[in-house]
Simulated assay, not measured.
Amino acid sequence: MAAMPSAPQSPWRHLPNAISSLRVVLVLPIGWLLAHRAWSSALMLVAVAGVSDGVDGFLARHFGWQSRIGGMLDAIADKLLLVSCFVILAVQGEVPLWLAWVVCGRDGVIAVGALLWRVLVGRIDPQPSLLSKACTLMQIVYLLVVLLALIRWPVPASELPGWLVAVLCVASGTDYVIRWSRRAWRALHPARVPP
């Protein structure tokens, strides 16, 4: 019996990856604008990047356009954008230095863990948790609040968003270490895992 022809794939299936790639491209102009204190323009691009982060995820999930490369692109785009923004703003004294260290430390731990997984276990399939997504969202919100304040937009003066970012970074970083350490142990010691 002849095999049934497979359904044609949508030409739009690469759209989420293209949006994630756009976010990677935006890192350089956003960094340049922040370094030159062009707050209004930086705010617009950070807002575009933040919205695109939600849009590409929605499209991938809703239409089944998820892929391994898409998950990796999304993670890389988020980390490049957020780390660069926090570092530049911290150097300029616009966000607390300790908070930038927390953000960079969390992403550094995740990056080292991913490298160890690749060396010791094999292929990596990014699977961000809800806690990780909440952490990313809070970091974007925090950056938008900081930039709004820098253009003299009337936002409430509060240290709460910064502390929420720090708590979520520590919580999600710890969650990553625990979850992926368990998976690595199971992958490397399959005979010791109870059925």
Rank of each mutant, 00 (worst) to 15 (best):
A2R: 14
A3T: 13
A3N: 13
P5M: 01
Q9M: 09
P11E: 00
P11Y: 01
R13A: 01
H14R: 13
H14G: 12
H14S: 11
L15S: 07
A18L: 15
A18C: 07
S20R: 07
S21G: 15
L22Q: 08
R23A: 06
V25N: 06
L26T: 06
L26Q: 13
V27M: 02
L28C: 13
L28E: 11
L33C: 12
L34W: 09
A35R: 15
W39Y: 09
W39G: 01
S41R: 15
A42N: 03
A42R: 00
L43R: 08
V46L: 11
V46M: 09
V48W: 05
V48C: 09
G54L: 05
V55P: 05
G57K: 03
A60T: 04
R61N: 12
R61P: 06
G64D: 07
W65Y: 07
W65L: 04
W65E: 03
Q66V: 09
S67A: 10
R68P: 01
R68E: 14
I69F: 15
G70T: 02
I76Q: 08
V91K: 15
G93M: 10
E94A: 12
E94C: 09
V95D: 01
V95T: 02
P96M: 01
L97H: 14
L97M: 13
W98C: 03
W98Q: 06
L99E: 04
C104V: 07
D107W: 03
G108T: 03
G108Q: 00
I110N: 01
I110H: 00
A111M: 00
V112Y: 01
V112M: 04
A114V: 07
R118C: 03
R118A: 14
R118D: 04
V119S: 04
V119D: 09
V121N: 00
G122N: 05
G122D: 00
Q127E: 10
S129W: 01
S129A: 08
L130M: 14
L131K: 10
L131I: 08
K133W: 02
C135H: 08
L137W: 14
Y142F: 14
V145N: 13
V145F: 13
V146G: 06
L147I: 05
L148C: 13
A149E: 15
A149I: 02
A149F: 11
L150G: 10
L150Q: 02
I151A: 11
I151N: 14
I151G: 13
R152I: 00
P154W: 12
P154Y: 12
A157D: 14
S158L: 13
L160K: 08
A166S: 05
A166K: 10
A166C: 07
V167A: 14
L168H: 08
C169F: 08
C169A: 04
V170F: 11
V170Q: 03
V170E: 00
A171H: 04
S172I: 01
G173L: 01
D175K: 04
Y176D: 00
Y176E: 05
Y176A: 02
V177D: 06
V177K: 05
I178S: 10
I178L: 10
R179K: 05
W180R: 15
R183E: 10
A184Q: 11
H189G: 10
H189N: 09
A191V: 11
A191K: 13
P195S: 08
